[in-house]
Design a protein around this nucleic acid. Structure first.
Length: 487
RNA sequence: GGCGGCAUAGCCAAGUGGUAAGGCAACGGCCUGCAAAGCCGCUAUUCUCCAGUUCAAAUCUGGAUGCCGCCUCCA
């Protein structure tokens, strides 16, 4: 089994070989905590959540670090606007981040360090850079001199001389090169500060990631991830700082996820079209959000539309309906950690290894989801045949095939609930939203059953139509009529 | 101005040299009182267009067109 990863640094897929056998050290840029999380945060976090889950599942000992940027201009500005301290603002949005991401069934990383807990370390790195003369101080600010770092631009594929500095923003005249960036920023009055050899101030944005990653993963580690937009300047600057300071290759594999558009438009402040996670999950099941995002390759852009997520929500129903059906047949669904029945005739298609093949090819979750649906159809087919061949072999085969789905589900983070819980939640959601209750629906179904018994099919169909207009669909199953909420 | 990406069925979306996964939707069939669900079948002789390389191209090369991103804080 070989994993191939698209490395932004090389602009090509490479064989994944860890620095230390069996261990993966991975760092992903987390949020700046000054506002609620939007669907774009969700994508990045979910993409790397799945990568983390997969690497763990195939046996690596993964140390996964995702930071919080809890000191920054945006935080200071927002806290001034609201009249609260930067610390409490950060605290509030860290809590909200956790709430949102837990809700999306995202696993917590191994470590979630905060910039403000690493100020000493940040200062130490800046001192190294000063001693090595990669950095220079002006009026309490400290800048990194990009001209002195050989290889500046290697990640983003830019050359300093080709870039149009100051095209959109005025250049600080104190910089030796317009692309020099700030390592340490002198504080203005009434701003939070820490003491440093260059006076009171706070860290620049990029240096914190160099400090925190070095602290927990060392000067050289395997995977660094984040959104595509971070390639320049953030990750470019991280490389410059870290490699200049420590003299080692900073990161082996750079992974960058694509953006989420909303109805064909980029999310932006001017359009006011930020879609917040907390709002999306009011409308859609969190796993529908996951399924939607993971149905696209992580490097491609994704266009978020109501129709798009409704379509995948229907697909999610299909998966859970299969699990419900299988659970009824088997008595209980297999546990994710349980073993396969070994006496079974090997199936024609090994969905588990097909899924792994997809994931091994640069974490192709979109293809993997295709395999998942293939597996669902396969089990439905087997269950259709159970009337003819309800023997122990068939049960074991279905058990094994369901176990595939559940093991795949552990990597994608969906399906992760019991079918009963899933459908129950859906029902509760519509009941809360609409002005009817379960009893009303049950009564209508009973009324229809009575009509059917009396062969009054006109009345029965009329009741069914009425339910349908309430967004309720019914299914007459051998064991009785059930109802469900339409997606 | 510099750098990069994308274009596959009605819609969404995999596929990066060997003859077009999967989902949603539609249609036909089985099942059903009728439905729904599920299954089966059908739905792109073809991958924006043009030229080229090759026994073989959606996949490689050149060109055209269209769309998008980054170069400023951004996931």
């Amino acid at each position: 089994m070989t994993i191939h990863i698209y490395n932004s640094l090389k602009r090509s897929k490479e064989v994944f070989e860890t620095i230390e056998p069996g261990r993966v050290k991975m760092y992903v840029c987390g949020p700046t905590v000054y506002d609620s999380c939007h669907i774009g945060h969700a994508r990045s976090v979910i993409v790397f959540d799945v990568i983390y889950r997969y690497l763990t599942a195939v046996g690596y000992d993964v140390t996964y670090v995702r930071n919080f940027t809890d000191i920054d201009d945006k935080i200071i500005n927002r806290s001034n606007e609201l009249g609260v301290s930067p610390e409490s603002l950060a605290e509030k949005y860290i809590d909200e981040f956790h709430f949102d991401m837990d809700g999306l069934n995202v696993l917590r990383p191994t470590l979630e360090p905060r910039a403000t807990d690493h100020i000493d370390h940040i200062i130490r790195i800046i001192e190294i850079l000063m001693n090595k003369e990669y950095a220079y101080a002006v009026d309490g600010d400290v800048f990194f001199s990009v001209d002195l770092f050989n290889g500046y631009g290697k990640l983003s594929g830019r050359k300093l001389e080709d870039m149009e500095a100051g095209a959109r923003v005025e250049v600080d005249q104190r910089k030796k090169n317009p692309f020099d960036f700030v390592l340490w920023k002198a504080s203005k009055p009434n701003e939070p500060f820490w003491d440093s050899p260059w006076g009171k101030g706070r860290p620049g944005w990029h240096i914190e990631c160099s400090a925190m990653s070095e602290d927990y993963l060392g000067a050289s580690f395997d995977i660094h991830g984040g959104g595509k937009d971070l390639i320049f300047p953030h990750h470019e600057n991280e490389i410059a700082q870290s490699e200049a300071a420590f003299g080692k290759t900073y990161v082996k594999y750079w992974i960058h996820n694509g953006f989420v558009n909303i109805n064909h438009e980029k999310m932006s402040k001017s359009l006011g079209n930020f879609l917040m996670i907390k709002d999306i999950v009011k409308e859609y099941h969190p796993e529908a959000v996951r399924l939607f995002l993971l149905s696209h390759h992580y490097r491609s852009p994704v266009d978020f539309t109501d129709q798009g997520i409704k379509n995948v929500a229907a697909g999610l129903d299909k998966i859970y309906a299969l699990l419900e059906r299988a659970e009824k047949y088997l008595g209980s669904l297999p546990d994710a950690n349980s073993d396969y029945n070994k006496d079974v005739i090997p199936p024609t298609k090994d969905f588990r290894s097909l899924f792994s093949s997809a994931m091994n090819d640069d974490f192709n979750t979109a293809q993997g989801i295709g395999v998942l649906f293939d597996a669902v159809r396969n089990i439905n087919r087997l269950l259709d045949q159970t009337n003819q061949t309800d023997d122990i072999e068939n049960r074991q085969l279905i058990h094994n095939e369901c176990l595939n789905i559940i093991k795949i589900g552990k990597i994608l983070g969906l399906p992760s609930e019991s079918p009963r819980t899933y459908f129950k939640q859906k029902k509760e959601k519509i009941i809360n939203k609409e002005s009817f209750d379960a009893e009303t629906i049950e009564a209508m179904i009973q009324e229809r059953q009575d009509a059917r018994k009396a062969k009054d099919f006109n009345k029965a169909d009329e009741i069914r139509d009425r339910l349908k207009s309430m967004n309720i669909e019914i299914e007459d199953r051998p064991e009785g009529t059930i109802w469900k909420v339409l997606s």
